[in-house]
C-alpha cells in the first residue's frame, strides 16, 4: 500500500544469535582440542575432522530428506561433531567415528526435531552407544606422544584406570598418584582426545561463563558435589583433586552438562542437575563396573530434565500463589 513495515513490538533485537553462541562454544573448545592433537598426534586430528565433517553432512542430508529448512549454518552440528570427537580415543577407527556421528545427528538430534528438541546430548548419547558397541576400540588408550619413536609402549593406563597402589622394596604397599599434578593439569595422560588438558578446559569453561553463554551453576554444582563426595569417601584432598582432573569430568561439567536443550532452564534446576551428575559420576566411578561415569551420569540426568523443569518453575513477581496453583495440579 504505502510500503510501511508493520510488526508487533519490540522493534529492537539482540545481536546475539544461535550461530554466534555455537561459535563461542567452538572457540572455547579449541584449546583443549588442539592440546589433544599435540598429545595424540595426527590420528587425533583425523578423528576430530571426521566427526565434524560427518556430523555436518548427516545434518545436511537429514534436513533434505525431512524436507525441513537447512540448519547447518547454525554451527550446532559442528559443535556436536567436535564434542563427539573430543570424547573418543585418538585410535578410534574412522568407521566407528562415522557411526557415532550418525547416532548423534540422525538418531538423537534430527529424528526428534533438530536443534533444541533432542532429549539427550547427541555427543554423549553417541559416545555411550559406541562404548557399549565397540568396547575394545573405545577403551584402548594411547599414551601421550606415542606417535614419536621415543616411546616403546603405545598404550597405557589413564588416570582413572591406573593403580595408586605401589610397593616398597620390602613389599609394603603404599599409595602414590600414578601421574604428577603437572601431568594432570596439562593433560599429558592417557584419555579421550579432548578431555585430558584440564587447563584448557577450565579456561574454555570460564570464557563461556564470563561471556554469559553458560551459567556457572551447573559446573559448580557438578564438580562441587563430586569433589565433596569423593573427599568424604577417600578422606584425601589429593585423590579428590585428581578425581576432578581425571577422565571426562571437566569437559562434561563445562561443555556437556551445560547443553541448553537437554538441561534445565532455571538456576535452581541447573543446580539440581549438576548435583545429580556429580552424585552419579561418584557412584559409577567408585562402585560401578565402568571406570568412568560422566557420560552415563549426564545422559541419565538429561532424561530427568523435563521433570526437573516441571519442579523448578519460577515464581513470577506478584503472582498469587501457591494455594491455587497446587489445587489445579492436584486436579490433573
Amino acid at each position: 500500500m504505502n510500503g510501511l513495515f508493520v510488526s508487533p513490538s519490540p522493534h529492537r533485537a539482540t545481536t546475539m544469535s544461535t550461530t554466534k553462541i555455537m561459535l563461542m562454544v567452538i572457540i572455547a573448545l579449541l584449546p583443549s582440542a588442539a592440546a589433544g592433537c599435540v598429545f595424540f598426534g595426527a590420528n587425533a586430528a583425523i578423528v576430530l575432522a571426521v566427526c565434524i565433517s560427518s556430523c555436518v553432512v548427516f545434518e545436511y542430508l537429514s534436513r533434505i530428506i525431512m524436507k525441513r529448512e537447512q540448519t547447518i549454518s547454525d554451527l550446532s552440528a559442528v559443535v556436536t561433531g567436535l564434542l563427539l570427537g573430543m570424547n573418543l580415543p585418538a585410535t578410534t577407527p574412522i568407521y566407528v567415528a562415522i557411526i557415532g556421528s550418525f547416532i548423534a545427528i540422525v538418531i538423537v538430534k534430527q529424528l526428534f526435531g533438530g536443534i533444541g528438541q533432542n532429549f539427550a546430548n547427541p555427543a554423549i548419547a553417541a559416545r555411550v552407544v559406541l562404548m557399549l558397541s565397540f568396547a575394545d576400540s573405545m577403551t584402548s588408550w594411547v599414551v601421550p606422544y606415542w606417535y614419536s619413536d621415543v616411546v616403546d609402549v603405545t598404550t597405557g593406563a589413564t588416570p582413572l584406570t591406573a593403580s595408586w597402589i605401589n610397593y616398597t622394596e620390602s613389599g609394603e604397599a603404599y599409595k602414590m598418584a600414578p601421574f604428577t599434578l603437572g601431568e594432570m593439569l596439562w593433560g599429558e595422560t592417557g584419555g579421550c582426545i579432548g578431555e585430558t588438558c584440564a587447563v584448557a578446559l577450565i579456561a574454555g569453561g570460564v570464557f563461556l561463563i564470563v561471556t554469559g553463554i553458560i551459567s556457572a551453576a551447573t559446573p559448580v554444582a557438578f564438580i562441587g558435589s563430586f569433589a565433596l563426595l569423593t573427599f568424604i569417601y577417600t578422606g584425601s584432598a589429593v585423590e579428590t583433586v585428581y578425581g576432578v582432573l581425571a577422565g571426562g569430568l571437566l569437559i562434561g561439567a563445562f561443555f556437556m552438562a551445560t547443553d541448553y536443550a537437554t538441561t534445565p532452564v532455571t538456576t535452581k534446576g541447573k543446580i539440581i542437575f549438576g548435583i545429580g551428575c556429580g552424585l552419579m559420576t561418584f557412584i559409577i566411578r567408585n562402585f560401578g563396573s565402568f571406570p568412568e561415569g560422566v557420560s552415563f551420569a549426564i545422559l541419565l540426568m538429561n532424561l530427568l530434565t523435563p521433570y526437573i523443569d516441571k519442579l523448578t518453575l519460577t515464581t513470577p513477581f506478584g503472582a498469587k500463589k501457591p494455594v491455587k496453583a497446587e489445587k489445579t495440579t492436584g486436579k490433573e
Binding site: H11, S17, T18, G116, V265, T266, G318
Partner: peptide, 28 residues
C-alpha cells in the same frame, strides 16, 4: 529498516526467563 532478524528454533537457552522482569517463562 523495518525487518527484524529471522526467527530460528528455540534452543532453550533460558535467556527469556533471565531477562523477564516478572520472572515469567516465555519459552514454556
Amino acid at each position: 529498516k523495518g525487518e527484524l532478524p529471522k526467527t530460528t528454533a528455540c534452543i532453550r537457552c533460558g535467556k527469556c526467563v533471565r531477562t523477564c522482569p516478572f520472572g515469567l517463562m516465555p519459552l514454556m
